[in-house]
Structures are given as structure tokens and as C-alpha cells.
Design a protein around this nucleic acid. Structure first.
Lengths: 148, 148
DNA sequence: TATTAAATAAGAATAATTATCATTTAGGAA
DNA sequence: TTCCTAAATGATAATTATTCTTATTTAATA
């Protein structure tokens, strides 16, 4: 447990959800995860902490978190859903080979796009967020991707 | 049949696929479609032309087209796959309320992002394409979204 | 027109997700 | 602290989405 337990409980309670053991473990796991895990991956890892956990609970809790805005859900080109506890605006680098999703934080780029679009008039539409997905392939699948 | 039949056949043949009736009808339908339809929608509409068509054929043909680069596959936040015969680089406006996907073509924006990223060094990664998704809501769900 | 490899239709099999419901639990009240 | 109750969970059935299998059909070309 790297992140403060009381803080996790508070964050769950603050969005109007009961801070159950399952929710605490799942949220803690997502907060620590950098890999944007699938439901299956989350299920397997949560089972190490709560062997009796049901897969239905994983689906339910994740959906509750998404609805509450605690986490984001990301659809990949492969059709599998991935979950991300990083709710700050950021973009994703996606490796079409390994299916790795790597966070790409760049305030300058965010601003550049936001400024550009604010000058355009998109009629009958209210923008809530803008996501850039950088697709491609890792040159060495075993090595990590780094920026600058 | 708005687009020339011979041209459709040629495009299918050119990527090494047999120009079957099913493929011709599906490709023609996608070329004319502006809505980025789901598999179900494509199936229903193709059945009007080929009542005996099998849903497995729809899945297979779409996947064949994607692999061949004739069409694109787009995953939405809802987890459903949508298909797009517009293979030119372009971005999407997505209404989280109606699930409408609207093409957003803007060469200036494409260049802006491409130029910005070319200056950044992303180590161990080769970019193949860059997709911007503009999420939000239509103000009037029954009206269309237009740019400029 | 005949040949043949490839594609299709139909439906079974599998995988992913959601629903149901009896049991358990978190959090507030006493 | 214990009791109470609405909400959450676990187990599993049901549903939905997708893929696979195989006998039949068809496009392409000789």
C-alpha cells in the first residue's frame, strides 16, 4: 500500500460510493498501475489480495468509478477496454504491436491543440475533452518508450 | 449505386481480394456512409441488398478490408467498433450523448500536430499515425455539427 | 465452359459483458 | 458498541459479440 489508505477511502467516499474492501483494493491498484490494464489483468491481480473476488464485481466497480469520474476508460483498436486512474488531461502513445499504452504528458501540445480549436467554430457542439492518440510501434518491444 | 461499380471492383481486386457480390455491396455501402456504422448497422443495411447474407461474412469482410487498408476501424468509448471508408488522414468529433462520429478534416491541424511531434524525440518508437478525438456533446442532438 | 482456390451461409463454439438474487457488509443511528 | 438497512458482493445464469467449422457456392482464369 503505497498511497495513503485514508486518502483512497476519502476519494471513493467523496464521489458518493461506499468505501468497500473491493473498491479500495481496485482503486489502489489502478493508482499504482502505469500499464492501463484490461479487466482480465485487474481481475487476476486483485485476486491476489482478495481471492474470493468475483469478476462481476470488477466490471461493476470499474464502471462505477468511470461514471463517478474517478478513472478513465480507454478503448483500443483491438476493442478491449483499458482503465486509467490518471484523470489529468494527457495523451496516449499506443504500440500496435505490443498493445502497450504509454502516457504522453505535454502541456505545450495540449495548449497548442486547445488554442487552435478555440479559434475554429464548431457549430452545435460543446467540447468536453480532446484526446490525441499517437499510434505506431516500439522499435525494441522489450525496451521502454521515453520522451525527450 | 452512386459510385462506379467497376471502380469498386477494381479497388477490391487491387488489394488482392476477390470482388465478390458481398464485398462489393459492403464496400459500396461504406463508401456512401457518413455515419461510421457499427457491424449491426452494416449487417441490417446489407441484408436489404443481399437477404441471405450471413453476419459472419460481415465480420470477415470488414476485417479483410481493414487488414488490406481499404477501410479503418474505430473503437468508441462504448466499446463498439465503427467502420470508416475514409482512409485519408482526418480526425473525429465524437458526441458522447448520441454516439455520432463526425469527420473533422483540417490539414492545418494535422500539420500543426505532426510538426510539433517531429520536433520532440520519442525514443524507441516509430509513429505510424496520429489521431485526434474531439469529445463532447451536440447542443441539439437532432441537428448536425458543422465546422466554420 | 470447366476447374479450383477462395469465399460464403448457417449455425456451433467461444469470449466478453451484464443480469439475477441470496448473502454479506459499510456506515449511520441508537 | 451493537443494531439496522440500503447498498455491495459472489456465484452463476443469461445475454451479447465475435470467431470458428464445414458443406456449399462462386469468382477468376485457363
Amino acid at each position: 500500500m503505497s498511497i495513503n489508505l485514508d486518502q483512497i477511502k476519502a476519494e471513493i467516499s467523496d464521489v458518493g460510493l461506499k468505501a468497500t474492501h473491493q473498491r479500495i483494493v481496485i482503486y489502489d491498484y489502478l493508482m499504482k498501475s502505469k500499464t492501463h490494464p484490461t479487466v482480465d489483468r485487474i481481475y487476476d491481480d486483485v485476486k491476489n489480495h482478495i481471492p474470493s473476488v468475483s469478476v462481476a464485481t470488477i466490471y461493476r466497480v470499474l464502471e462505477d468509478f468511470v461514471t463517478a469520474g474517478l478513472i478513465y476508460k480507454v478503448a483500443t483498436r483491438e476493442g478491449t477496454m483499458r482503465y486509467d486512474a490518471n484523470t489529468a488531461p494527457h495523451n496516449h502513445i499506443y504500440c500496435t504491436n505490443t498493445q502497450d499504452i504509454i502516457d504522453y504528458n505535454d502541456q505545450e501540445l495540449n495548449d497548442l491543440i486547445a488554442n487552435f480549436l478555440s479559434k475554429k467554430k464548431i457549430k452545435n457542439f460543446k467540447i468536453s475533452d480532446i484526446k490525441l492518440q499517437i499510434n505506431g510501434e516500439k522499435l525494441d518491444p522489450d525496451d521502454s518508450v521515453s520522451i525527450n
